[in-house]
């Protein structure tokens, strides 16, 4: 193993260890205190949409994308699952349980498990195994399978949170045509551009990973946002420092 590889490995381990320490520290220090976040319009609108759908007896649809769990894209899918869990709890008072669609088989199974757990914790909801479904394994077959769910199942709010490609535009367009609320976020750069243009409420960059914290998923979610903020400042300082050293001819 070369010296550079050892250094990079240690640096990566240091970042993971520091992040874990920061998250644990913030979670313990804050306890059950309500954290305050900057205002993100998408999450305000999501809260309103959830309230409306519980009142009018319509359905929530969460689409988790195509991120395979054994790839780096799995992280965005897991963020989507965390939000699905929270939203399934929040909508348990409604007439219709939420549905979750995905383009990866393992993700579809996890979405079923998430919905089943939410149903077990609610006295009003009966778990329907078809509520967590696989719609297709290629980008466009996945999108083509999701569109009927948005259109035909009395959905009033569509959340796209996970790893999508540009096919996300077909889904947000379907949501627009069905006159439903749409909130979307992806880890893919091309998808973020189309989502910005097509979704009612787009989430850019790391905002999608903040969804759980804004939906009130717990102190660790809030602590992870604080940890991300600190890491971001450290990275900014390192980049500026590196640029200054380079300009001075030291690096």
């Amino acid at each position: 193993m070369s010296g550079d590889a050892v250094f990079l490995g240690l640096a990566a381990f240091g970042v993971v260890f520091l992040t874990a320490g920061l998250m644990a520290g913030f979670a313990i220090a804050r306890g059950q205190k309500t954290p305050s976040f900057r205002n993100i319009s998408a999450f305000d609108q999501l809260r309103r949409a959830i309230g409306r759908l519980v009142e009018d007896g319509s359905r929530l649809h969460v689409s988790l994308g195509r991120g395979e769990l054994v790839t780096p894209q799995g992280a965005s899918a897991l963020a989507g699952l965390a939000l699905l869990r929270r939203l399934a709890d929040l909508t348990s008072a409604g007439d219709k349980p939420p549905i979750a669609t995905s383009g990866d088989a393992a993700l579809a199974i996890l979405s079923q498990d998430t919905l089943q757990n939410a149903a077990e914790n609610s006295s009003q909801v009966v778990f329907d195994p078809s509520a967590g479904r696989l719609t297709g394994l290629t980008p466009f077959s996945y999108a083509a399978g999701v569109i009927p769910s948005i259109r035909d199942e009395h959905v009033s709010a569509t959340i796209l949170l996970g790893s999508f490609g540009p096919e996300a535009a077909l889904l947000t367009d379907a949501a627009e045509r069905a006159n439903t609320f749409s909130l979307a976020g992806s880890d893919n750069m091309a998808a973020q551009a189309v989502i910005y243009a097509t979704a009612q409420e787009p989430l850019i960059g790391e905002e999608m990973f903040a969804a759980g914290a804004y939906a009130g998923s717990g102190p660790v979610h809030a602590a992870s946002l604080s940890a991300q903020d600190i890491l971001r400042w450290i990275l900014i300082a390192l980049m500026l420092g590196g640029a200054a050293l380079k300009a001075a001819g030291i690096l």
């Binding site: 970042v15 993971v16 992040t19 874990a20 998250m23 780096p72 992280a75 965005s76 897991l78 963020a79 965390a82 880890d187 750069m189 973020q192 850019i204 960059g205 790391e206 999608m208 990973f209 903040a210 660790v220 979610h221 992870s224 946002l225 940890a227 991300q228 890491l231 971001r232 990275l235």
Partner: peptide, 16 residues
């Protein structure tokens, strides 16, 4: 910049 933000978000999601 956006990708760095996504990477930090992915890191904290994995740690959770």
């Amino acid at each position: 910049g956006i990708l760095i933000g996504v990477a930090l978000g992915a890191l904290t999601t994995g740690l959770r």
